[in-house]
Computed example of a mutant assay.
Amino acid sequence: MIENFASVRGLRLAWLDGGPAGAAPILALHGHFGRARRFAPLAAALAPGHRVIALEQRGHGHSGRDGDFGPDAYVADAAEFLRGLGLGPVIVLGHSMGGVAAFRLAARHPELVRALIVEEGGADNRPPAIPHPVLDVRGWPRRAATLGELRRGIEAQGIPDAGYFLESAVEHPDGWGLLFDYDDMVSSQQALIGDWWADWQGSTCPALLVHGLDSFVLPTAMAREMAARRPGTVLRELAGCGHWAQDDDPAAFAATVRAFLAAL
């Protein structure tokens, strides 16, 4: 995927282009702590029929930040980004926080979204439905002498596998660290705590909801309720997968997405 930059609502946002210009576009939105490049395997699996355009969201990766991490800011960025590219309506795929942004984008800007693919993005992000909606990273190491040391420092905070977070690891002049600001990420997660049912039910386009049955973030009961309460929604449950289903079983995730796209 090729990295590009766009000026979006006063911010310089990075984005990756993963397909030919003439292919059917899919806007991909990562979740908290994520990077646009995590969609590279999916882009390869869907090529050449689809063009995955992955937006690196505000405060993440190589994108800028302005202190606003409210859910509306992510939606407004995505809408303006699509308009800037002259695209729409497109298929919008989002993971976790990016999934919430995706279905809120469809509810607020239906002219931009022809179909939804939501991976592990819940309609209710409040306790007790989601027992721990905020991962407090403020105690994580900010610099380490080596990448391995940074990994061990993060995993010592109770993270079984720091691989997802290390996608944001870079070497600075004073050692290895992560690209995102820790306070920003806590603020963003706190802002996402809420009842998003009206947004989930606020669009009528076809939707695929992908749920990892081993997820500690999206309860299976909520995923099934989401599918039952929104007409036109297909629920696919992936066994042996957790919250990062596309990383746990890339082939199964790609096949699930491909089948949904073929049925559109």
Score class of each variant (00 low, 15 high):
residue 4 N to T: 10
residue 6 A to T: 06
residue 7 S to R: 15
residue 9 R to K: 01
residue 10 G to L: 05
residue 11 L to A: 04
residue 16 L to V: 13
residue 16 L to A: 15
residue 19 G to F: 03
residue 21 A to P: 15
residue 23 A to K: 08
residue 26 I to Y: 09
residue 26 I to P: 00
residue 27 L to E: 12
residue 34 G to F: 03
residue 36 A to H: 02
residue 37 R to F: 01
residue 40 A to V: 13
residue 41 P to V: 12
residue 42 L to Y: 08
residue 45 A to N: 10
residue 46 L to E: 04
residue 47 A to E: 07
residue 47 A to K: 02
residue 49 G to Q: 08
residue 54 A to W: 00
residue 55 L to N: 07
residue 56 E to C: 14
residue 57 Q to N: 12
residue 58 R to I: 06
residue 58 R to P: 06
residue 59 G to L: 04
residue 60 H to E: 07
residue 64 G to F: 05
residue 64 G to E: 14
residue 67 G to I: 04
residue 68 D to L: 10
residue 68 D to V: 09
residue 70 G to W: 05
residue 72 D to H: 14
residue 72 D to K: 12
residue 74 Y to A: 05
residue 76 A to N: 12
residue 77 D to K: 07
residue 81 F to D: 02
residue 82 L to V: 08
residue 86 G to N: 08
residue 86 G to I: 05
residue 87 L to C: 00
residue 89 P to M: 06
residue 93 L to F: 13
residue 94 G to T: 07
residue 95 H to I: 01
residue 96 S to W: 00
residue 96 S to Y: 06
residue 98 G to I: 01
residue 100 V to N: 04
residue 100 V to D: 08
residue 101 A to R: 02
residue 102 A to M: 13
residue 103 F to G: 06
residue 104 R to H: 07
residue 109 H to V: 04
residue 113 V to C: 09
residue 116 L to Q: 13
residue 117 I to P: 03
residue 117 I to C: 02
residue 118 V to R: 03
residue 120 E to G: 07
residue 120 E to A: 03
residue 122 G to F: 07
residue 123 A to F: 02
residue 124 D to F: 12
residue 125 N to F: 15
residue 126 R to D: 08
residue 133 P to E: 11
residue 136 D to V: 12
residue 136 D to T: 12
residue 137 V to I: 14
residue 139 G to T: 05
residue 139 G to Y: 04
residue 141 P to F: 04
residue 143 R to Y: 09
residue 143 R to T: 13
residue 143 R to P: 08
residue 145 A to P: 10
residue 149 E to M: 03
residue 151 R to K: 14
residue 154 I to L: 15
residue 154 I to G: 06
residue 155 E to L: 07
residue 157 Q to F: 00
residue 162 A to D: 09
residue 164 Y to K: 09
residue 165 F to E: 00
residue 168 S to L: 09
residue 169 A to H: 01
residue 170 V to R: 15
residue 171 E to A: 14
residue 171 E to Q: 14
residue 172 H to P: 09
residue 172 H to E: 14
residue 174 D to E: 13
residue 175 G to K: 01
residue 175 G to A: 13
residue 176 W to D: 01
residue 178 L to M: 03
residue 179 L to P: 00
residue 180 F to C: 03
residue 180 F to N: 04
residue 180 F to W: 13
residue 181 D to I: 03
residue 183 D to H: 05
residue 184 D to Y: 02
residue 186 V to Y: 04
residue 191 A to D: 11
residue 194 G to I: 11
residue 196 W to C: 04
residue 199 D to S: 11
residue 201 Q to D: 10
residue 203 S to A: 15
residue 209 L to P: 00
residue 210 V to G: 08
residue 211 H to T: 05
residue 211 H to D: 04
residue 211 H to S: 08
residue 212 G to S: 11
residue 212 G to I: 06
residue 214 D to G: 06
residue 218 L to P: 06
residue 218 L to S: 11
residue 219 P to Y: 10
residue 219 P to I: 10
residue 219 P to W: 11
residue 221 A to H: 08
residue 227 A to I: 03
residue 227 A to V: 04
residue 228 A to G: 13
residue 231 P to C: 08
residue 231 P to Y: 09
residue 235 L to T: 04
residue 235 L to H: 09
residue 237 E to V: 09
residue 237 E to M: 02
residue 238 L to W: 02
residue 239 A to S: 10
residue 241 C to R: 02
residue 245 A to T: 10
residue 246 Q to L: 13
residue 247 D to H: 12
residue 253 F to Q: 04
residue 255 A to W: 03
residue 259 A to I: 00
residue 260 F to Y: 01
residue 260 F to N: 01
residue 264 L to F: 12
